[in-house]
Nucleic acid binder design. Structure first.
Length: 901
RNA sequence: GGGCGCGUAGCUCAGUUGGCUAGAGCGCUUCCCUUACAAGGAAGAAGUCACAGGUUCGAGUCCUGUCGCGCCCA
């Protein structure tokens, strides 16, 4: 089921920027619906492009069912989901410090905040005590706080110190006058405060003065302290990050701080530091490197900001949950606390949303590949905090809540409407959540003075519903019955928490079952120097450009070959001129796939040229010919290995197995042998050839669908019936069955014998190359015809002579081996007569003898080592002994040849 | 601060539960435009498996530590 989500923040930001750049107009210059219409146009353009990319890449999807998270089907599911969550009391409104992005003026989830290391400062600022204090005989007029964000001091409502601080007994309960503002604030005790220790290993302790300014409205830790001590909360900033007294700050007027109003937060920082310096209250400034949260969207520093947001309670037990959750209880993987069933070792109630997502991992119903990613999923859920779901955007699913200040008694009690009273800043607000399909209720509410919440839902809310919403939930559709749960989710590791966990959560909560049983996390492609591909760096690649430069199949093959279990994959990016003349980014890496496809095409063409008058499978006797037995064994082994690789998501292994079979076995050896045999009138090779190609195409189709489908249709014209059974092939390869490995065809003896044959051919070729024997000249080859390799060569004499460019010297012929080149196959010496340069051969053999001797020494050492023979498995010991014997025969042969030179 | 990954040939990467002389592609060297393929064929050179310890008959593989690179989370 193909489709797109609406990528709320990203999409709106892009369109806002574009309209500002092109037309000089801001979002606020538009009516809401008009602006949304503009985004819709942009989205349609890009959606079309994305779908076209998927099609061009050969993705096999159900195109008729293409979905978008904001289309009607999905929108209804979102409304229904929200309504049910609200009805179950899992959605609430909370005043919280949120991650505020002053640039885009929206709230970001914790996951949307990027932590960057920033070179900053600690400023040491003196706050005067209202009354001086005597400590150990000295008079103290000031205390000094240290801060990295001086501008927030305008909102300070206390100074905290650790009760264990020796000065605490003199200072606790005393008051300070907040500079600039003049506000009188208390000195309180809180254990969160780090004690000052210049010698400490802890950096914080080295930088601490022991006094902490407390700004509940602008710092998460301070917010906690404020909650503990019931401190006032004073917000000193406007949503755009400028200093303002319009959002909860009422003692600015008339103070020295008034001059700061309207300044940007960073301007204000400088002004405040300067003011302290002038007033002689700046004690010190020290360099400090620390982590600062930045918006992943606008990249400006996040401002912790006090704001009203809708939340989903993820650890709240759901009363009367209607579906079975898991068998964890039976397996004693839960524990009881205060009447609640928790997942063992966590504070996650089994019947909470977090529990619903965590249980299927723990009970094994959801599996990750590679397995290590299960940890990411698990630890995220175990430490989950409530999910802020409102976003200050226009592009998205608008929150289906209408509200009105004051207690408003419900007018009757229409279906599809839930009222809830919420306390907010000392006033009561009545909120109404409306179910989908109740437009009349919505109109009535608006008539009654209710206003719809302006915010939209987090994009992930609707994305979390994807597996069910796209198939028509909340109806119990035939689609859902047929395809839910699905088998496999394939995705990137960076959204395991944002997306994967929430799909499981919602799938379990709304449908009572997991959305998928397997999660495959694929590698991420980076550029050649290990950087993420991005528009701003200009190091990204458009798949359509790769398709233009190398072809879709080449791209698919290469990507599959690069897909390993590792986290990141590097893709060198290069500008290239495409066939249509455009210059675009692509990568020479795709040569791998292009060369592969080219080879496959040529080999298939050649095979098909030779299939005329192919005998039926039932007429041939492939068991009688070594090369047939060998290639059929290789076919079966390849089918077996390829199937295993697919089952294990080993995509690089799959391409590796198929590459090796196609190129090295099928092309380099079997096709070359078939040439000779077919020329000699041996037509049995044709039937085997056709069968090999048939299986190869079926194995390759998922990776390189276009070229294999094309070859398949040509093959069907040449030989519609082929392979064991001689039955007609499927018209379309995409419908053909994945081949089954035929264990009876696996023939280790044939593979071993063929190996000897191949070594003999290579041995002759090697000598020819080393001694520059002209290709036209036949090499005279002499060997013991009674030996195992000798018999094999003799049985395939014509083939051997053709492939090696050799002539076998008649058995028993006496020959002068003095000027022969030598090589060994399985311990049997082979001589190539009269071709050599004696000095070169001596050097070659000496080197070879050295290599063999190294091998022998290694094995002898191993066999002599204490414990090896006694402790290693018998088969390992035997293997070493066999190898040693062969090597010794090889060495003897080489030594003999050296002596006779 | 917590977690995860990576470091193997000049480059990009494989190497499953420890067990043949550590592999592939690209690049490089030599020869070959042989009637499927020069995006090709034949042959070849090239690695102290980051470093230091440990476990073991045996370590690229397991354990501990160090160094370097990257990612995720707080």
């Amino acid at each position: 089921m193909p489709g797109c989500d609406h990528a709320g923040i990203a999409t709106q930001t892009v369109v806002e920027k574009r309209i500002l750049a092109e037309e000089g107009r801001r979002r606020t210059d538009f009516a809401r619906d008009d602006f949304i219409a503009r985004i819709q146009v942009w989205k349609d353009e890009y959606e079309t492009q994305i779908i076209a990319q998927l099609k061009a890449m050969g993705c096999s999807c159900d195109w008729d069912r293409t979905r978008f998270t904001m289309d009607d089907v999905c929108a209804r599911a979102v409304r229904e989901a929200f309504f049910r969550l609200f009805a179950d009391g899992l959605i609430y409104r909370g005043k919280r410090l949120v991650n505020w992005d002053p640039a885009t003026q929206t709230v970001l989830a914790d996951d949307e905040v990027e932590h960057e290391t920033v070179q900053g400062h600690f400023w040491y600022m003196k706050y005067p005590l209202v009354e001086s204090v005597e400590i150990e005989g000295g008079t103290v007029e000031h205390i000094t706080i240290a801060t990295t964000r001086p501008e927030t001091m305008l909102g300070d409502t206390a100074v905290a110190m650790n009760p264990a601080d020796p000065r605490a007994k003199y200072l606790l309960g005393k008051k300070v006058r907040l500079p600039l503002v003049g506000r009188i604030i208390p000195i309180i005790a809180d254990e969160h405060v780090v004690l000052a220790d210049p010698e400490s290993d802890d950096e914080k302790a080295r930088f601490s003065t022991g006094f902490l300014k407390v700004t509940p409205a602008h710092d998460p830790d301070d917010w906690q302290i404020g909650q503990r001590h019931d401190l006032p909360v004073i917000n000193v900033m406007a949503p755009d990050g400028t200093i303002s007294d319009k959002f909860g700050w009422d003692d600015a007027t008339g103070s020295d701080a008034e001059q700061l109003l309207g300044m940007d937060r960073f301007e204000a920082r400088e002004a405040i530091v300067e003011w302290f310096r002038t007033e002689n209250l700046l004690e010190d400034v020290r360099e400090y490197t620390h982590e600062v949260g930045h918006s992943y969207r606008s990249h400006v520093p996040i401002e912790p900001y006090l704001s009203d947001q809708w939340y989903i309670a993820v650890k709240k037990p759901i009363s009367n949950f209607q579906f079975p959750i898991s068998n964890l209880e039976k397996r004693k993987l839960t524990e009881q606390k205060d009447g609640v069933t928790y997942i063992k070792g966590t504070d996650v109630p089994l019947n909470s949303l977090a529990g619903l997502a965590l249980a299927p991992l723990l009970d094994g119903r959801v599996k990750f590949t590679p397995e290590r990613y299960a940890k990411t999923y698990q630890s995220w859920l175990e430490n989950l905090r409530d999910w802020p779901i409102s976003r200050q955007l226009w592009w998205g699913h608008r929150i289906p809540i209408w509200s009105k200040v004051g207690k408003t008694a419900p007018n009757g009690k229409p279906d599809g409407l839930i009222f809830r009273e919420i306390e907010n800043d000392d006033e009561i607000v009545t909120c109404a959540c409306v179910a989908p399909g109740c437009e009349d209720v919505e109109k009535q509410l608006e008539k009654d003075g209710f206003q719809r919440d302006p915010d939209v839902l987090d994009t992930w809310f609707s994305s979390a519903l994807w597996p069910i919403s796209t198939m028509g939930w909340p109806e119990d559709t035939e689609l859902l019955k047929a395809f839910y749960p699905t088998d496999l989710l394939c995705t990137a590791r960076e959204i395991i928490t944002l997306w994967v966990s929430r799909m499981v959560m919602f799938g379990q909560y709304f449908r009572g079952d997991i959305p998928f049983s397997q999660v495959y996390i694929h590698a991420m492609i980076q550029d050649g120097s290990g950087r993420k591909m991005s528009k701003s760096l200009g190091n990204g690649i458009d798949p359509l450009d790769i398709i233009a430069s190398h072809g879709a199949d080449a791209m698919r093959f290469t990507l599959a070959a690069m897909t390993t279990e590792t986290q990141d994959v590097r893709m060198p990016v290069e500008e290239m001129t495409l066939p249509d003349g455009r210059v675009a980014n692509t990568s020479p890496k795709f040569d791998i796939g292009r060369n592969f496809c080219n080879k496959l095409w040529n080999a298939s063409r050649f095979a098909m040229m030779n299939l005329e008058a192919m005998p039926a499978w039932s007429e041939i006797h492939p068991k009688k010919n070594l090369s047939d037995r060998w290639i059929l064994s290789r076919v079966s082994t390849t089918v077996r290995d390829a199937t295993a690789a697919v089952d294990a998501f080993g995509f690089n292994e799959l391409t590796d197995v198929l590459y090796h079979f196609m190129w090295n076995d099928f092309c380099d050896w079997y096709l070359e042998i078939a040439k000779v045999r077919i020329n000699a009138g041996e037509s049995a090779a044709k039937a085997v050839l056709a069968h090999c190609l048939d299986v190869l195409l079926r194995l390759l189709h998922p990776i390189v669908p276009f070229i294999t489908e094309q070859i398949w249709s040509q093959l069907n014209e040449v030989v519609p019936c082929r392979g064991p059974g001689d039955s007609p092939a499927e018209d379309m390869l995409i419908r053909a069955q994945w081949p089954l490995a035929d264990a009876a065809m696996i023939d280790p003896a044939a593979e071993a014998d063929f190996e000897l044959y191949r070594d003999a051919v290579r041995g002759v070729r090697n000598l020819r190359a080393e001694h520059n024997v002209s290709p036209k000249q036949k090499a005279k080859v002499l060997f013991d015809v009674q030996s195992v390799p000798g018999r094999i060569i003799l049985e395939n004499q014509a083939l051997f002579e053709s492939q090696a460019g050799a002539e076998i010297t008649p058995a028993g012929a006496q020959a002068d081996k003095g000027d022969a080149g030598t090589f060994t196959v399985g311990g049997t010496p082979f001589y190539v007569l009269g071709v050599i340069d004696i000095e070169a051969e001596r050097a070659r053999l000496t080197k070879q003898a050295g290599t063999i001797q190294n091998g022998i020494t290694g094995i002898e050492k191993k066999l002599a080592a204490e414990g090896f023979v006694a402790k290693a498995p018998a088969e390992v010991v035997q293997r070493e002994r066999d190898r040693l014997a062969t090597l010794k025969r090889d060495l003897e042969a080489v030594t003999n040849s050296l002596e006779s030179l």
